[in-house]
Design a protein around this nucleic acid. Structure first.
Lengths: 338, 338
DNA sequence: ACTCGTGAATGAAACGTTTCACGATCTCCA
DNA sequence: TGGAGATCGTGAAACGTTTCATTCACGAGT
């Protein structure tokens, strides 16, 4: 049924040349004379030859592909990051292997294993835990690694992130300015520096306004940062009566969950509850109440990360690790209109 | 810097066994005696050995991975399909290579090329054009192919889709029941059988209600099926004055675009314009006006497609192509409340 | 004591490329 | 006429596995 696909050798016989020549046509066309090249090309077409990349890579010893492991492809934020990565990789002649860890360590580990076995040149990752033995091991084996939307406290690799303290401050200052004195922060796991940093920023701006952060801010930690989980937690709170007049959410999916919970428990937004999200995904503008959000330069994060990685792959010796940090930006919409 | 990673041979030397034994430890542990196995394992750990999958695959001649090419990862619909595919592939021991063609033929072709070079066992694809030379060539070379969310009129491969005529009918019947007599259909390219079929269903239900489809339905064809393009087209129409009282959209992203355009030109939804979307993505329920939509069993589509593909991969000789067709379902929300 | 069987490990061949040192052939000019 | 370059092509080695026929060791059965 599937007749073993033709090899370079079959092409060589068919074209009446040696295998080396066929290989040259494939990889260094300028080294072979026009008529020969044409003969080989037509043999390739006639036989329907397709290069076996396993063999090529085995012999060459190195591939031109990089791995990208994101936390949650369902979140448009990561989708945009991936797009940025692909753009740059494309320009620089690298292929991207896209992996979705879905916030599960087992999946993350499996993908890391696969990428190592494939001998990718480097890995871009938004890891579940910043410092993992597996990542260290990977780096030790000489595979360049760049953290995406994360930061390594022990600066031993490149990273690209956004200043989350500033993000938290922007959100907090905005809410405080509107007179809110009780703010609930729907956070992801506080073990994530992102979530912790946003809280730091939030507290800072609250304090700057002369309020006591401990009294003004309540933190609700939600393990899975998606709409459904957040909706469920928020709804339970709202049914008991919510003391806060404003909610700050660690991402827009969570904000959508909070919004749905608020509306379905009869609250008006922003009248009864103002909401600020994070990421400014495309859907934020189309939500039931268009969401105020903290915008991150999403595609740029991906682009910068890919550039750093490729730089390190191409100059492993002279490379010095860098920590790129972008600034977030406040986008106001109805969900916080006074 | 990157010290050539250790091979199976290094492990063999370190453990004092032959390479064949190391390979057996890796692939058929039951064939090797306990003490030897332990020795090899510790050598592997000591050296940080990672199998080179290129070499393995080259020798073995076949991989256990399948390719999945989707049209638009930014659309949650495809994301859910991918999730279904991954679930099944996982269960059956296959790895999935996820590719996003982004509706560009050049990208689709590039990915097909890569997948062929990697000698994947099979390909799941939502192609840009159902009948393409490339796909035919792929199949001719013996690579099983399954169409996802598409249908092959010349039944020469498996496919999984949803009955789009019924979907169109559901939408049309719902709108007609509510008294609408002028419906604008924001369609994707009518070359897509999906878009054409939905129109067929829409016309059928309108006709069934005693109206003249040609008079009642206006078709607006939009080349790129996303929110932004649709918004722009819809807005231009609305600013001229929209004769229709109801809009049916070929997917929810488009519906969100129409919704935004309607609201921003001062229309009330559903008062001035009722809207029906398609796919029932998660965001549809959270939209400015929660969207009535046609739900498709998204994950199931992915699951079914993966099952068909694996079945064909495992039994290429006895396999008979199948066309699986699911039924869609109407979900009513505020955007069409009378 | 001899063979037989069994379980365990070996070692070489093969997979399809790329690479590279080496020929072969031609061109040009002293 | 001869030799130096160019220009093209060749063929074998090597990449790191898996596979499989073979060897080895050892105890059981006669």
């Amino acid at each position: 049924m599937s007749p073993m696909s033709p090899s370079i050798k079959d092409v060589a016989v068919h074209a009446g040349v040696s295998v080396g020549t066929v290989s040259n046509v494939l990889n260094h066309p300028e080294r072979v004379a026009e008529p020969t090249r044409a003969a080989v090309q037509s043999a390739i077409a006639a036989l329907g030859f397709v290069r076996n990349s396993s063999a090529a890579q085995l012999r060459a010893g190195t591939s031109r592909s990089i791995g990208l492991i994101v936390l949650d492809l369902a979140n448009p934020f990561f989708h945009d990051v991936a797009r940025g990565v692909e753009q740059v990789a494309d320009e620089l002649g690298y292929a991207v292997v896209l992996c979705n860890s879905d916030d599960q360590t087992s999946r993350e580990n499996r993908y890391l294993q696969v990428l190592e076995e494939q001998r990718v040149r480097g890995v871009l990752i938004t890891p579940i835990e910043v410092s993992s033995d597996r990542l260290d091991a990977l780096r030790k084996r000489g595979t360049p690694t760049v953290l995406v939307d994360r930061h390594d406290p022990r600066v031993n690799c490149c990273s690209v992130a956004v200043d989350d303290v500033v993000g938290g401050e922007l959100a907090g200052a905005h809410l405080v300015t509107q007179g809110h004195e009780r703010i609930v922060y729907f956070s992801g796991p506080l073990g994530l520096s992102q979530c912790a940093d946003r809280l730091t920023g939030l507290r800072r701006s609250v304090a700057a306004a002369g309020l006591d952060p401990d009294a003004a801010i309540e933190v609700v930690e939600i393990p899975v940062m998606n709409a459904r989980s957040t909706h469920d937690v928020a709804r339970a709170r709202f049914e008991q009566g919510e003391p806060a007049t404003a909610a700050f959410c660690a991402n827009d999916l969570m904000a959508l969950g909070v919004l749905r919970a608020a509306l379905s428990t009869g609250r008006r937004v922003p009248g009864d509850l103002a909401i600020v999200g994070y990421d400014d995904i495309e859907f934020a503008a189309d939500a039931a109440v268009p969401l105020t959000s903290i915008r991150q330069p999403t595609q740029q994060i991906g682009r910068a990360a890919a550039q750093l990685l490729v730089e390190e792959c191409d100059n492993p010796d002279t490379h010095a690790h860098q920590q790129v940090m972008f600034k977030p930006e406040l986008v106001t919409r109805d969900s916080t209109q006074p």
